[in-house]
């Protein structure tokens, strides 16, 4: 198609939107609602995954050794553990460090109370490795392995965090995908109907165009423009609204519920929207294209 025809067809496409403005508005509103919900789910899922990731990175298995183990034996065990695929990194805490940590944590400014233990470390056999995992779901495998290892007296694990966080993240992900797919299908159905109405209104014009010798592309182009424009507009409105709401809501939650700051870790809006903007606009364009295609395939038999 030539450039001048492209300009003509863009104009005709925009005219179509204006002519059927009520239906166009309904389509834009529906796509906006769908993509708004998509954005909400996307923001929830990505933030949830971020929180899970942060929580998982703190999930660790603590390993205590049999009494009388030499430093060399402990180091060998450490190397062995580090070599496992489940393991991200390990941190060694000696008996003295464990006692010092305990003193700081429990006695605080009353450190004098612990003076009686000056030459007798009550945690003499409490040297340990804190083993951090690559993936919290691998914890059980690692713990089984460690419990069967020679020289290891006790293995402490954090069951609840690891398994529950992983399964909740998967559940939220699946539920979001199902809801979003349904919403997208509704959007495509509505945009198809809007374009079909446009085609019906212009049936006489299309019929004349065909008899005069218009190409398929020339006949279809205004409707494709119409679908794309509705799709793009339908994606822009929710993005603007979501950006406003997200920035304000995160700020509000962090300010009002500062106690939860350790649990709730939100992604900065730039990070969420760097992905959400192209995905939403892409979905808007996709919905527009598919809607136009379905309407034209069925109703413009050129």
């Amino acid at each position: 198609m030539r450039i001048r025809s492209l300009a003509y067809n863009i104009k005709q496409g925009l005219k179509n939107i204006y002519r059927n403005r009520m239906f166009s508005l309904a389509s834009i509103a529906t796509i906006s609602a769908c993509l708004f919900l998509f954005g909400v789910f996307y923001a929830i899922v990505t933030n949830f995954q971020y929180m899970v990731q942060k929580a998982e990175s703190s999930v660790c298995v603590t390993v205590f050794f049999d009494e009388g183990m030499t430093d060399q034996q402990i180091q060998d065990i450490g190397k062995n553990i580090e070599g496992r695929v489940e393991v991200s990194n390990i941190q060694f805490t000696s008996s003295d460090e464990a006692w010092n940590n305990f003193k700081t944590e429990y006695f605080g400014q009353y450190a004098d109370l612990a003076a009686g233990f000056k030459d007798d470390n009550p945690l003499a056999n409490s040297a340990s490795y804190a083993v951090y995992l690559n993936d919290a779901s691998m914890q059980t495998t690692l713990v089984t392995y460690l419990e069967n290892m020679d020289g290891i007296r006790q293995v402490n694990k954090s069951d609840i965090t690891a398994s529950s966080l992983s399964s909740v993240a998967v559940l939220v992900g699946y539920a979001s995908v199902v809801i979003i797919v349904i919403l997208l299908a509704v959007s495509i159905f509505l945009i198809t109907n809007t374009i079909v109405i446009g085609v019906t209104v212009r049936k006489e014009e299309i019929s004349i165009m065909k008899l005069i010798g218009a190409t398929d592309m020339f006949v279809d182009a205004p409707f494709i423009v119409e679908g794309l424009t509705i799709g793009i507009l339908g994606s822009l409105f929710p993005l603007i609204l979501l950006h406003y709401l997200y920035s304000n809501l995160v700020g509000f939650v962090l300010n009002k519920f500062s106690l939860l700051n350790n649990i709730l870790a939100f992604l900065p809006s730039e990070k969420v929207f760097a992905t959400l903007i192209p995905i939403s606009i892409g979905l808007g364009i996709g919905i527009g294209c598919i809607g136009s295609y379905l309407a034209l395939r069925k109703h413009v038999n050129v």
Binding site: M1, R2, R4, S5, Y8, I208, M209, I212, G213, A214, F218
Partner: peptide, 10 residues
């Protein structure tokens, strides 16, 4: 319109 449909020069 007939000229535009056949993409005649403006």
């Amino acid at each position: 319109f007939a000229q535009k449909v056949v993409e005649a020069p403006a």
